[in-house]
Design a protein around this nucleic acid. Structure first.
Lengths: 224, 224
DNA sequence: GCAAAAGTGTTATCCCTACACCCATGA
DNA sequence: TCATGGGTGTAGGGATAACACTTTTGC
């Protein structure tokens, strides 16, 4: 394809970048991709790419996300749009940033579609990032933290069924503080978002834990 | 200028649209502009326009806002980015929406730079809007309402100095409900955001009201 | 029986809500 | 003196925060 696209006025390129969070090994982690081309070749960066002519912004983010993780039904929300004229050395690029939450899993998928390196990094040990991606990541973390307080977003970081201790762990890791077990359970159950599955999980050599399900896992809602 | 801009891949046009709110005559009002050209010629629309090659997104919004209102130092915040491929019939347009808050004024400026009609509409009597602007306006109103609860954004709708009753009026109009005077005053003063100017405003035939100033009017901050 | 995580209540404090009257002024 | 909006306090109920022991299981 050597076709050219012509416009009477200058048009910036538009991309989406996705901040993909998950929790594993007791830490909040971020999905990064090692760039295979200039600029910033060899530097870690957020997954993302150019907007196709006939897709909506969220479709673009979803497509890019799936190309990197092969994951379906991942929670995805628009974060902010970054348009500093200098943010990409090649040309003017406006990037619509999204963030995504991948549920806790035993085997985190990282298979990239091509030979590029893909890896989960703990938020407190991030490598240097390309472009203005540090800024995007910081904003996403701030948003996640504050949404935890007034929405049911935490369940997007949990699998279909989970124990109350696992919910508490999500809150503790994202907020980076220990919480009181009894108070936490009172609060979280009072919200009416949890349904007891009636099943138990027998884990190690200790009392089994009740398994719960989020009443509406498909939509994040305001609470209180 | 008959110059053409060429790209190897299709690039959408990028615009900003601004949802400009103010309060007057006891109602939340929105600044609208009657379109002078197709598409949607003669229909009311949000102020906004194309991103220039060397300006940041917020600069673009600020510039468009100033061209319509001649106002400086207006609070401006990015809202959301709209990119439905069908949202503009001419070409693919991605619009970064902002919202702006204009303080209560006696003489609201509406002088457009050119001959276009510019007008403030009460939110409960909006005319039909061009493009997807209804959607943008609804989202902005929702955002304003929720930010009122956890930030000091209300002071952006007030002049330099103001009475407690005026603050209460802002809350009542945006939230569309009456509030208890004593409880409101206790809450708002407890936040530590208000500074007593020591001056009084003598208004009508009643006791004069104390005038207050927002401690940090230049930055909107989280409260609680 | 012992280690390890699950589960469970009470009390003191703070915050929110409901509610009604006096004050200072201009006409 | 009257009409108008400005200004003030208290009491009851509900939410929040601090705090420790028993239960169930696997080994």
């Amino acid at each position: 394809m050597s076709m050219e696209y012509r416009y009477k006025h200058p048009h910036p390129a538009v991309t989406t970048d996705i901040v993909v969070f998950t929790i594993s090994d007791g830490a909040l982690k971020l999905l990064l991709i090692k760039r295979g081309q200039e600029p910033y070749k060899g530097t870690w960066a957020l997954p993302g790419g150019f907007l196709e002519p006939n897709e909506d912004l969220s479709q673009c983010a979803q497509r890019e996300l799936q190309e990197e993780t092969r994951l379906q039904n991942i929670y995805l929300e628009q974060l902010y749009t970054f348009g500093n004229p200098e943010r990409d050395p090649r040309e003017r690029v406006v990037s619509v940033a999204y963030y995504a939450l991948v549920p806790i899993m035993d085997n985190l998928p990282v298979a990239g579609s091509d030979a590029t390196a893909v890896s989960w990094y703990p938020m407190d040990k991030l490598p240097p990032l390309a472009f203005d991606h540090v800024e995007i990541v910081n904003l996403a973390q701030k948003r996640l933290l504050s949404k935890l307080n007034y929405t049911s977003i935490a369940f997007q970081l949990l699998p279909e069924t989970f124990t109350l201790s696992e919910v508490q762990t999500v809150y503790e890791i994202v907020r980076n503080e220990k919480l009181d077990k009894r108070n936490f359970r009172k609060q979280i159950t009072k919200l009416g978002l949890l349904e007891d599955t009636g099943e138990l999980r027998r884990n190690g050599s200790h009392r089994p834990a009740r398994l719960y399900r989020a009443v509406c896992r498909n939509k994040v809602q305001l609470i209180d």
